[in-house]
């Protein structure tokens, strides 16, 4: 397994608490970088990154366009933008139309990350109420990356995780505690 370079985490309805739990136990100094794609209110720009930073072991940043991706850092997709991960280890923002009724869309970030990081990527999909992320997880898997979905039985809303499981042969279906353990063992 590995060595991995980047982890993308997608979540929507019912995922906020799980995200804060994960952030509170991220291992430091692994050299990994993280991107969070969370469905959020389009017209509320501030407050979210601060809320996620409270318990995070690593700095949480909303990247600007073309910002270089640094290790040991968590990047939160800014409100009302899509976030692409480009070849060359940097971000591009976009105001393209919503995908799966969502901007940011999990599919867009996951698919571009799959293209840019190939087998050096882990994709994690959490609780959510629509099908966003299913195509992205498929692309990660097909590009040789590792895919993890939160156990639908544990999700507040299981539409999103179930859609990904239907679409792709997911590598691991785990509870949040197990996802945390999985990440903490990564080097």
């Amino acid at each position: 397994m590995g060595p991995y370079q980047h982890i993308v985490i997608g979540g929507s309805a019912g995922s906020f608490q799980s995200i804060t739990q994960i952030l509170a136990e991220l291992p430091k100094n692994t050299g990994l970088s993280f991107s969070l794609v969370l469905h959020r209110l389009k017209h509320v720009r501030s407050g979210f990154v601060e809320a996620l930073s409270l318990r995070s072991t690593l700095p949480v940043i909303e990247p600007e366009d073309k910002q270089y991706i640094r290790p040991n850092t968590v990047y939160l997709t800014p409100a009302n933008y899509h976030l692409y991960i480009e070849l060359g280890n940097y971000f591009s923002l976009s105001t393209e139309e919503s995908v799966n009724h969502s901007r940011p869309s999990i599919d867009i970030t996951f698919s571009s990350a799959a293209y840019s990081y190939k087998e050096k990527l882990v994709g994690i999909l959490l609780s959510g109420a629509n099908r966003d992320g299913a195509m992205g997880m498929k692309d990660i898997k097909e590009a040789g990356g590792f895919t993890i979905v939160q156990d639908p039985d544990e999700c507040q809303v299981k539409t999103m995780t179930s859609a990904a499981i239907e679409t792709t042969q997911i590598d691991k279906i785990l509870k949040i505690e197990e996802i945390i353990r999985f990440i903490s063992q990564m080097k």
């Binding site: 899509h82 692409y84 991960i85 480009e86 070849l87 976009s94 393209e96 571009s112 840019s116």
Partner: peptide
Amino acid sequence: SLCSMKRR
């Protein structure tokens, strides 16, 4: 930007 243009 490559990824968004390629996707479109």
